[in-house]
Design a protein around this nucleic acid. Structure first.
Lengths: 183, 183
DNA sequence: TTGACGAGAGAACGTGCGTTCTCCTACGGT
DNA sequence: ACCGTAGGAGAACGCACGTTCTCTCGTCAA
């Protein structure tokens, strides 16, 4: 089996299991079982579990932001594009396997013990914030709007994760619309 | 030593260690060392670690909401009281040992494996939201404002935790003021 | 055909930790 | 003084899991 293929399969399993059950409750043996990649191969690809976790967060970051950007791109009006972010969140929250924001969860689980994970979380949140800032600038709005919109989105992710409801996305969207109007 | 005293000492140590280093990386033996309460006594008071975690979250919930309410009570004007919530958050974020919201972190760490912890987190967040709803009602504002204010506060907690900055509180406060004006 | 090599299955090893057990000490009542 | 009991210190137990090792087998070059 090709190394690249094995790597993808390992990451597929890691993402499914880590996101669904948390990092610490998933053993390397579970990854092996779910991916079909042997332990020996796993440790060749990722010398330690922490690096598998890092790779999982990194790949998910790229994909998550891609999916978001693709949804946003379907809208023409720059203000609509900003609101589309919250629509996309609503769709995400409604997915069957949704269990909150992977990075916020990882921070809660590993933030105190793994600086590499903290760096991944900061990087992801910064990238998301930068993306919002770009949308705000494209709409010709005040840069100061970025912070509040970001906080609304983060609050919605946390709340949707804890409660299991998609409602926070709609609440955040409504609040965002008010802020856009007032800004 | 009195049972009640031992219980408080155990919870003091549990709170300091669980909040500071996460639940899973703190052993019962660490609790014993930090509290001076013997293992035997610990297991008399809390038959399993999970119940110690529950008790920790429960006691912290009561104290956290008390501290917040005491700060808010110092303000007369009902709208000022709402904004005072965000001032209090800023002070909290600035504390030396601040490491994010204990419940959000606990959800990330144990949400997938411990329904009791999930219940504690939901309970705490619901109580906080109810409190905000009360403040909104007292100010004669539309009930629909509660959701957005709650999301701003949650977003600020997460972001302050991840970045270690107090800035999100000020951003949230500013956004809250705009929403109050527009609402 | 043979021998070297890579890969997989799974045992093995070391450690950490939740929980329980053992032993010892101190004290309170008779 | 003597015993029963509570409590503390810390060893012991069982298990989970990260990581490494062993054994075996298939493959491919010479």
């Amino acid at each position: 089996m090709d190394s690249a293929v094995a790597r993808e399969q390992a990451l597929d399993a890691a993402e499914r299991l880590f996101y669904g059950r948390g990092v610490q409750s998933v053993g390397m043996d579970d990854i092996r079982g779910a991916s079909g990649v042997s332990l020996k191969r796993l440790y060749q690809l990722f010398p330690a579990k922490e690096q598998l976790v890092e790779a999982y967060l990194e790949r998910r970051d790229v994909r998550w932001r891609q999916r978001l950007a693709e949804h946003v791109r379907r809208h023409e009006d720059p203000r609509e594009r900003l609101l589309a972010v919250f629509d996309w969140l609503e769709g995400w929250f409604g997915e069957a396997d949704f269990r909150g924001c992977a990075w916020i969860n990882a921070y809660g689980e590993l933030g105190a013990t793994s600086p590499r994970v903290v760096a991944q979380v900061r990087g992801h949140k910064q990238a998301f914030r930068d993306y919002l800032a770009e949308l705000v600038a494209d709409a010709g709005l005040a840069a100061a709007l970025t912070g509040p919109l970001f906080l609304l989105a983060e609050g919605a992710m946390v709340t949707a994760g804890v409660t299991g409801s998609t409602e926070p996305a709609a609440e955040a969207r409504a609040a965002a619309r008010v802020l856009l109007r007032a800004g």
